[in-house]
Nucleic acid binder design. Structure first.
Lengths: 338, 338
DNA sequence: CTGTTAGCGCTTTCAA
DNA sequence: TTGAAAGCGCTAACAG
C-alpha cells in the first residue's frame, strides 16, 4: 500500500494536520517541525494522493481537452499550446477524442465531468452546439477553439478565417490571377464556411464569378484533397489557381499535382489555409495563410483559467468572449508568381 | 453544488448503500427498488463522482500515456491506438508530454502517480532508464513503446527496426544500388541505433563500406533531415541512394530534394523508415518501411491491462515481455527504380 | 504554532 | 433484499 499522510504523521510524531500544513506551505509552522516532517516525507518518499485532496477541495487542477481527432497535427499543436500555458499555472491536461462525432463528444464530456475536471477546452465536432448545452447547466467553465457551435454561447478562440482568406485571394487577384478553383471542407463547420465566404467575397469584389464546376467540397482530409484536385485538374478548362481550405487537403492536392507534374505545361498555383510543417515541402508554388496555432491553445487556456478562478471566488462570470487571432500570409514561391 | 448519492437516496427513500448498489449493477436488488432509484437518478441527472469512487476503490480506470512530443503524428497515432483499445475496456487515457527530457518525464510520472492512474505507457525520452527505476518500486504497471530504456526492464512493444531496415537495404542492394548515404537520429535512442545497425549489416553483407562523409546523424526532426540531405547532396560525390531513419527527417530531406530538383540530372533515391500520411506526397522515388503504428498502441494497451488485472487479483506479475511487431516494405516509385 | 475533529462522496462489510 | 456505519486520504474550522 502507498504511504499516506498518517504514516508521515506517526513517524514525525505530529498530527496529520501538521503534515498537511507542511506540504501545503502553510506559513504558520515552525521551522523545526517543518524540517522534521519534510525529512520523513523524503525518507518515506511520500506523495500526496491528489484523489483524496480533490475530494476535499473540489478541484482537480486538471483541464480536459476534447478534439475531434487525436492523430491530427493541427489539434495536437493547439493541445501543445494549451499544455504550455496550463503547466505554468500548475494545471494538467487530459486529452480526449470525440472522433468527430457529437455522441462521442457528449460521452467524453461526461467522463471528464465524472473526473471532476476544473474546465474544458473543446474543438466541437459539429457546427450545431445543441448537444453541448448541458455544459452550461452543469456550470463547467468551457472554451471553444477553432470552431464555433451554433446555439452554444461560450468563450472561443479562433482565427479570422474570412478575412485571412479574403486577403490572400485579394492579393492574388491584384497580381492578375483570375481563374480560381476552390477546394472546401464541410461548411457546417464554421472555419470552412467562413473561408468559403472570404473566398467568394474577394472574387465578387473583382466582379469575378467562378465556374461552378471549379467549386468543390469534401471532408477535410488528405485523400479528399487529392480527389478534389484530381477533379479540378481533369476538368476542361482547369482552373489556373486553386484555393484549398486547410492543411490536410493542401497536402493531398499537392500530392496529386506532384504526381502529375509532367502532364501540365503551366503549374496550377495554390493558395491554402494553414501553414504547417509540410506546407513548404512539395515545391508547388503556393501562398498560405498561417494560423498562430500554439497561441490559439495558450490563449484558450488563459481564458479558461480566468473563468475557473472567478468561479472559485464566486464572482460573476464574464460575458462570453470570442477572440479572433490574426492570420499571416506566407509565400512559398521561388519564382514569385504570386 | 453537484447532485450526490445522498440526494438520490433521500428522494428515492432508500439508503445510499442501495443507490450505490443500483448504479453498480449489484444483482441482489429488487426490480422495483432498482426502477425507483434509476428514475430518480435520471430525474436529478445524477452522475457518480469518480473521484470519490476512486478514493474508496483505489482504482481510477485511467491510464497515463507519456510521449516525448505531443504535436507528433507518430506518437499521437500510437496514442490513438492505445485509446481505441482502452475505450473498449472502459478505461480512459491521460496524455502527457515529457518534452524529450528525462527530468520532465519524472515530473509527469509523479503527476500521474498522484492522480492514481492504474498504469502508464511510456515512450521514454532517453535511452537510459535509470530515472524510470522508481516505477518498479512504486509497483506501477508500465509498458514502454517505440523505445527501450537500458537498465529498466519492463514490457515493451516496438518494431523490428534492425530487420526492417536490413530488408529494405538488402532489397535495394540486390537491385543494384551501391552508393548509399545514411541520415540517422540520436543513436542513444534504441530505434535509431537499431536502424543504423540494420543498415550497416546489409551493406557489409555485400562487402560495401559506405563513405564516412555519407553517414550523418542529427535529431529526428524535419529541419535536421533537410540539413543533412543538403550536406549529402552538396558533397562530391553525392550518394545515389540515401537511407533516412524516420518520417520527419524523410519529409525534411524530401523538401530539400524537391526544391533543388532541377539541379540534379538523376534523382537521389530514398529509402526511409516509417510510412505515414505524407510519405508518398513528394514525388521523390522512395521505398519506405511501414510500422503498424496503431497496433503498437493497442498492443501496448493490452499488455498493460493484463498487468493491471493481475495486480488487482494479487497474482504474480509475468516476466517482462518485449514484443517486436513486423514492419512492411512500401514502394513509392512509379518508375520502378527500386 | 499545533492538535482535534468533522466530513468531502462513495463503497462495503456486517447485521437485520 | 436493504440499512447502518465505518473508512478511503486529505483539508480546514475551531480550539488551545
Amino acid at each position: 500500500m502507498a504511504v499516506t499522510i498518517k504514516d508521515v504523521a506517526k513517524l514525525a510524531d505530529v498530527s496529520t494536520a501538521t503534515v498537511s500544513r507542511v506540504i501545503n506551505n502553510d506559513p504558520r509552522i515552525s521551522a523545526v517541525t517543518r524540517d522534521r516532517v519534510l525529512k520523513i516525507v523524503d525518507k518515506l518518499n511520500y506523495k500526496v494522493n491528489s484523489i483524496a485532496r480533490s475530494l476535499k477541495s473540489n478541484r482537480t487542477f486538471t483541464v480536459g481537452f476534447l478534439a475531434p481527432e487525436i492523430a491530427n497535427d493541427f489539434f495536437m499543436t493547439v493541445a501543445q499550446g494549451v499544455e504550455n500555458a496550463l503547466r505554468e499555472r500548475g494545471y494538467n491536461l487530459i486529452i480526449c477524442n470525440s472522433n468527430e462525432s457529437a455522441d462521442e463528444e457528449v460521452e467524453r464530456l461526461e467522463l471528464l465531468i465524472e473526473k471532476c475536471v476544473d474546465g474544458v477546452i473543446i474543438a466541437p465536432s459539429s457546427g450545431s452546439g445543441a448537444h453541448l448545452r448541458f455544459l452550461q447547466q452543469v456550470g463547467l467553465p468551457t472554451v471553444l477553439v477553432d470552431r464555433l457551435a451554433a446555439g452554444f454561447s461560450s468563450d472561443a478562440v479562433l482565427v479570422d478565417n474570412a478575412t485571412g482568406t479574403y486577403k490572400a485571394i485579394h492579393h492574388l487577384l491584384k497580381r492578375g490571377h483570375t481563374h480560381f478553383g476552390f477546394i472546401g471542407g464541410d461548411v457546417s463547420l464554421t472555419p470552412f464556411r467562413e473561408r468559403y465566404q472570404g473566398f467568394m467575397h474577394a472574387l465578387s469584389e473583382f466582379g469575378i464569378q467562378p465556374d461552378p464546376a471549379h467549386i468543390k467540397f469534401g471532408d477535410y482530409h488528405v485523400d479528399s484533397g487529392y480527389a478534389m484536385m484530381k477533379q479540378l485538374a481533369e476538368h476542361s478548362p482547369a482552373p489556373a489557381s486553386v484555393f484549398i481550405s486547410n492543411y490536410f487537403m493542401h497536402i493531398g492536392a499537392t500530392q496529386y499535382l506532384v504526381e502529375h507534374r509532367s502532364q501540365r505545361s503551366r503549374p496550377i498555383f495554390i493558395a491554402s489555409f494553414d501553414d504547417m510543417a509540410l506546407s513548404a515541402v512539395a515545391g508547388v508554388p503556393s501562398l498560405t495563410i498561417a494560423q498562430p496555432v500554439l497561441q490559439i491553445g495558450s490563449r484558450a487556456a488563459q481564458l479558461l483559467l480566468e473563468r475557473i478562478e472567478l468561479r472559485l471566488n464566486h464572482n460573476e462570470p464574464p460575458q462570453p468572449r470570442i477572440e479572433r487571432l490574426p492570420t499571416r500570409l506566407v509565400f512559398h514561391d521561388r519564382n514569385n508568381t504570386a
